[in-house]
Design a protein around this nucleic acid. Sequence first.
DNA 1: TAGATTGTTAATCGATTAACAATC
DNA 2: TAGATTGTTAATCGATTAACAATC
Lengths: 211, 211
Amino acid sequence: MGRKKIISMSVIRRLPKYHRYLRELLKNDGDRISSKKLGEGLGFTATQIRQDLNCFGYFGQYGLGYNVNELLKEIGGILGLSKEYKMIIIGAGNIGQAIANHIKFQLYFKLAGIFDVNPKLIGLEIQDIEVIDIKELANFLKATPTDIGIVCVPKNNAQIVTDMMVENGIKGIWNFTSVDLEVPEEIILENVHLSESLVTLSCLMNSRTYL
Amino acid sequence: MGRKKIISMSVIRRLPKYHRYLRELLKNDGDRISSKKLGEGLGFTATQIRQDLNCFGYFGQYGLGYNVNELLKEIGGILGLSKEYKMIIIGAGNIGQAIANHIKFQLYFKLAGIFDVNPKLIGLEIQDIEVIDIKELANFLKATPTDIGIVCVPKNNAQIVTDMMVENGIKGIWNFTSVDLEVPEEIILENVHLSESLVTLSCLMNSRTYL
DNA sequence: TAGATTGTTAATCGATTAACAATC
DNA sequence: TAGATTGTTAATCGATTAACAATC
């Protein structure tokens, strides 16, 4: 109760790393871990980890550290990893297919449909899911409430398909185009800007001199 | 001269956005832009943009703003977008193929080879490039100096192929696995952690209440 | 010149780190 | 109890924003 603290984006971006590391830990080693060791494993300071965790409450034990399994559950809960998210992919091209494959290995995320405009792709099976005509999107979403829409279409169609999804009840957008999508405030948008990532790499390779 | 300022990662991550926006601008509208309008277009404050640019020198004109073309060139230079980077992809699976396709549309980046262990994939052509046996990697790199290696292999092989590339002169790694790769200090590492991105989306969709 | 907008310094805000009392 | 490590407050560091003189 009383969890009114505002969680910063910096903290949120670290949580998936904690979660991943703890999962590894549970597989291999022990059942307890200190903020110190967790920090060493992840490249953060112990203090930062304790600060981060204390945004959400206190689940450590004085003198003993954290119970791995318990902490994992807590963080999983914060990350919303409990129920299963239903997702659709718009765009059955290269990236769309790669993401379809990626999702197959994710617990908590389930691919419910793949859409495209290209008649050559419609009807094709990708990861056991038939590619559906984009014209059917609105009907599909009305019949099958879906949480997350994944945008893997060419730039010029990105906003259009996003609008269609938002109008039909999608709550989150995972965007793989280089477009800055416009979405209503209540819709969550997460971008994977590949081109920006690559150019950042280029920048860092270039600028070591004055970095 | 005297560009000794240390550029923060926050600034560097914004530069690709400036670059992209200015390219659009050059295509469409005018040849001049003020920090105010640039900020409006990108969702940053005018002050922030002026601060960012002044890390690298002064290329604005009092009273008139910035010359789009000139600014684009300057930022392109800072980003290292002048020469062409030679790249190879390790792993010709779904993501490897998607990235191969992606690179085709990038100026300044040229795909020089794709490698895999799978005999079924070796010899196949992807984006006009034949998939080569991973055993040939070291020889290939000795014969063909390459700037960037792209890691698209399964988790358990990620570090191995990275080490091979680093030993053979690769300067930058673009990592698409969920592994935290270990590289020598002088090697630049840029991660695209898809799973973390997806889990962040989940977290944000989940936690709007106390955000 | 008057208007506009930069370059830059100073003020504020936020995030990270240090320190330490609380407590298992 | 002594040793360890948390939870939390205070100090530091860095990044963003505000303000304004410089100047085209």
